[in-house]
Design a protein around this nucleic acid. Sequence first.
DNA 1: TTGTAGGCGTTATCAT
DNA 2: ATGATAACGCCTACAA
Lengths: 334, 334
Amino acid sequence: MKVTIKDVAKRAGVSISTVSRVINSSKPVSSEIHQKVSSIIEETGYVPNPIARSLVMKKSRLIGVLVPDVSNFFIGEILNGIEEIGKMYNYDIILCNTYGDLEEEIKYLNLLSAKQVEGIVFMTWKLQEKLVNYISKMETPVVLINRNSKDLDIPSVSIDNFKAAYEMTNYLIENGHEKIALIRNTVDKDAFGFDLYRGYEKALKEHKIPIDERLIRYGYFELKKSYEITKDFIDENILPTAIFASSDVMAIGAINCLLDHGYKVPDEVSVVGFNDINLASIYRPNLTTIHQPIYDIGAVAIRMIIKKINKEPLESNVSILPHMLIERASSKRI
Amino acid sequence: MKVTIKDVAKRAGVSISTVSRVINSSKPVSSEIHQKVSSIIEETGYVPNPIARSLVMKKSRLIGVLVPDVSNFFIGEILNGIEEIGKMYNYDIILCNTYGDLEEEIKYLNLLSAKQVEGIVFMTWKLQEKLVNYISKMETPVVLINRNSKDLDIPSVSIDNFKAAYEMTNYLIENGHEKIALIRNTVDKDAFGFDLYRGYEKALKEHKIPIDERLIRYGYFELKKSYEITKDFIDENILPTAIFASSDVMAIGAINCLLDHGYKVPDEVSVVGFNDINLASIYRPNLTTIHQPIYDIGAVAIRMIIKKINKEPLESNVSILPHMLIERASSKRI
DNA sequence: TTGTAGGCGTTATCAT
DNA sequence: ATGATAACGCCTACAA
């Protein structure tokens, strides 16, 4: 049987209030009683029941984390940041996998707030409007990951995807590329990575390079799809000199396809990615990519949610973290 | 303000017990009252407070998951299995990152059981004896992942690492290799992967191939270390014809080194891995490796812990899942 | 079938 | 400084 505060009180010959006081040092307790109670807590191995505590305090010290795929390379690194900082503030993390499915997301959003989590860190591939409305109405504070939601009033943290894509496209152009394919995530405006398209477009326009719609395709976050797209470029005989993939994984899909079909990377085709997941520097050739401070994204997100929980003001509703273009072996000047 | 069972009772003009009964269908309720209460629950959006419920039921419907590194490729895939099956049984997952540090592990083990989790899925790189003793004494049920603990009375799930390594070594030998390096994880007997060494040894012995201690090194789970080891083989002029790494990631470290130094894989050196993480078939050359049913390992583990929670008997204390040697492009006959 | 009341383990507000 | 006691929201004998 678990020992409770009552047991301790009884054995110490004091009231439970006193025991509570020494546990929480919420009010002064005479040092001899403090001694006694402490030693009894020690010997009985008493630990306060956090559930009972939550009930009266109305605080669960739980933060829900909703992600579309735990095993995703990018997300795993973010989770590290979330978990570590959460623990630092004495919060535990409840992890939920949504598969990016809208219904699952709403279901879990409900479930979590019913479970009395104090806040929710939310990440998804596609932030549909329905979801935004839903979240805005929730009482539990939510922060979004990897979403520039200046227009929304939901706090969020991410890099400046638009600018990063703009820089990457410029980099390719400055290295002599004109036929630059873009492998986007999805068609949807509300999907993760839409800003990349805008950045790409702007760079091309500024350099007066006409946009070739045939070179803009959708990889749906999948390595395999990206592989197929690249194969299509080959088959359709429109292989560009550079491929800009919206994620490192899709960049690798493209490179794999190229290598499998006898093309040299980067000698014949430059391929660049986005995110700089660990894999980007493990894979050969190393990926030229946009470095995101992935761990920090998680860390900042959970810090924001904790601030929201404590009703502290956020410096800014959207936190934009710095990115960096990293040139490695998968791209070259032509 | 959150609506409680009292509010519902009041508005329905019944007692809270009646409301409780319709929520849990624990006892018969006349259909008209049932109607009424239901509709009020509907319109108020009442949701039972799981914390209050936990307190009286002494069940939190929470399962703790302790892993050494969330962002590890192998672990991410396991988490998918854990999360999905957990949800299926209406359990939530509390995720903790231990970094494989003994003190952290013990700390979290305590923390979790204090948090009233009903069970714990535990994974670590090094299962020190101290930890085993500790776990055996815990009241909260624990199941170990990826550990053949026939000798322990702690339930566990994994593949037959010994047999898998034996098969892999045999495979290499049958393909003409005699100089086979083994990149182990760590020196420790209690570390994850010790059985691989035994399997390797047995295969060599059976084929009367003398064991060359210079070819057995320790990569400590790290790609970088494995890279360095391979570099050492080159520098010391003892590069074998085959390298058997205890993990896919370390196999990739070895291959990267080989490629960087102008060696052809698999033409000059065969390199094989272990685990078959997603990356194994993404990386080029594709890795010959031991396939583990990674998702299932997580799924089985959580099923076991749920059985333990419900005090149902386990068919077996150790669950050994099937593995498979997958031959891909990183190895060849010589 | 329905309601009353006690209890789950804490914290917090009163008195004392 | 210490001790009763009332919450917190829910479940469950027991009574009616």
